[in-house]
Nucleic acid binder design. Structure first.
Lengths: 273, 273
DNA sequence: CAGGAAGAGTGGTCTAGACCTCATGATGTG
DNA sequence: CACATCATGAGGTCTAGACCACTCTTCCTG
């Protein structure tokens, strides 16, 4: 149970937020009303603005919905309106499958131009290189190739290839925080057909992903999935016009790191604006 | 130019927000600081909480960034952390290509089971059915098939197939607000190979999309893109744990429409949590 | 019994301050 | 000259109210 008062040093709205979050996960169901703002005001001995700040945060997260004149309610779980930086293993487990991996290659080499560019490094920078066959319940699902700059995690592969590269990065304070992925469809190469034990169909889905921790690219990876066994679900938000800042006055840089360019390869055609 | 005062009936924070939005698009560049909160307080003759409400909105939208002790700045354009509900035409134009469409079929028929399920209707419900070949700068890019319940827009195709089905829906107050899409890779059928004038490669990317306006499904569509000319860019957010409301106490419904189920077809493997 | 009015309760907006932490640059001081 | 200190000003949190708009229920009236 969450204590009603704020711990010393903890902001009051954080305490209210925590209380509401706990309420939502343990007591309330979708559609239920939370206590009114004024009653929370009394319960916590804070002003209404503070209560609203806590509720605002949860509304922004999509956990709660306000309805003027009626109250504030637990929002229905939205299909999750964002793609997430998940790994093959996490995805498989989430679907009740047992993930597996067979290491096909594991080496350290100078980064090829394409890889170096994706990692924002110089060509030839030493990188770890791992190629794995990924399976779900023992069935081959994809061939996955990853590159990670050696200087970020020199001992990454000292104890063999870790089950999860993301987890290994997190242990080294290189938490993956965001990424970008390009998806294409293509014919499998003979090697891929062989590795994935594909019969009949030849189409595969290829992905190229850049993973970032903070402002730096920490990993570049490509995967090749069986077209007949893999699909991607993408929730789509309304295409609202976005506010675009004025162009740079003359030239000069922006004074901060600039948006990384699109991943190498063909110009993306689908999606964002 | 935006007036400094609020128009009668307009909320004050809306006026401040509009002023800042205008400032960002016409005067400031990425990294520039906006006026301090206290100076905006004087400029608009409002309290600081009101100014903060306006700034909060823009921060939530990703337009501005706060930095305690330093100021509030124009945020770098985020790679756009969401896929958007865009159409082939909008996407093509955004990339400087000229979109085109050839209508291959246009008819009204009873909804097949799969289509009906995707639209949350009974099998056999009358639907408009349109099949179009989509081109960019004259080059065939995809074959697109759409189904729309007739009762939502009886006169949709009376004047021929509109250039944009989404625009036609908007005109009828059926604004598409969100959607969900499943992407797969597959071998093209002989008909598709022919229509798309594909040579050499046979792989295509298939998409199945449900488009929703409000709570109702307004359109189901499938597309088949040339694998060698089309790719999808997907920005990925960190996989944070999400707040999950308590399960329904006993049974009964949630008192509001429930999250629509996943689109028909194979179980999605990639993406959201 | 039907319809409308009133009241209570909810979130929405807003004020005019307060004190806090943090970043930065100017000012001294060793 | 290098470093510590301090003043300034930025955003962060918080108060104790106020009035408005909206929804719903209850109760009164025709």
């Amino acid at each position: 149970m969450v204590r009603d008062g704020a711990r010393p040093g903890e902001h009051k709205y954080v305490a209210v937020r925590a209380y509401l979050a706990d309420l939502v996960t343990t007591e309330l169901a979708v559609g239920d009303a939370i206590p009114s703002e004024r009653s929370l005001t009394e319960k916590f001995g804070v002003s209404r603005m503070t209560v609203r700040q806590a509720i605002d945060a949860l509304v922004t997260e999509g956990v709660l919905e306000r309805a003027q004149g009626r109250g504030t309610f637990v929002a229905p779980p939205r299909a999750d309106f964002e793609m997430r930086l998940t790994t093959f293993g996490e995805e498989a487990r989430r679907r009740g499958l047992t993930p597996g991996a067979t290491v096909l290659r594991c080496e350290q080499l100078p980064a090829p131009a394409v890889v170096a560019e994706a990692l924002d490094r110089e060509t030839g920078t030493p990188v770890h290189h791992v190629v794995r066959l990924r399976t779900a319940d023992g069935n081959p699902m994809s061939v996955e190739e990853s590159w990670i700059p050696v200087d970020l995690a020199p001992d990454l592969l000292d104890d063999g290839v870790p089950d999860s590269l993301y987890a290994a990065l997190r242990e080294r304070d290189l938490d993956p925080t965001w990424g970008e992925e390009v998806i294409t469809a293509a014919d499998a190469t003979p090697e891929e057909l062989e590795a994935l034990q594909m019969q009949g169909s030849r189409a595969v889905m290829r992905t190229a992903r850049r993973t970032f921790g903070g402002d730096a690219a920490v990993m570049y990876s490509r995967a090749c999935y069986r077209g007949d066994r893999y699909s991607v679900f993408v929730p789509l938000r309304e295409a609202r016009p976005t506010l675009v800042p004025r162009a740079r006055p003359s030239d000069g840089d922006a004074g901060r790191p600039v948006q990384p360019s699109a991943p190498p390869g063909r110009i993306p055609e689908g999606s964002p604006r």
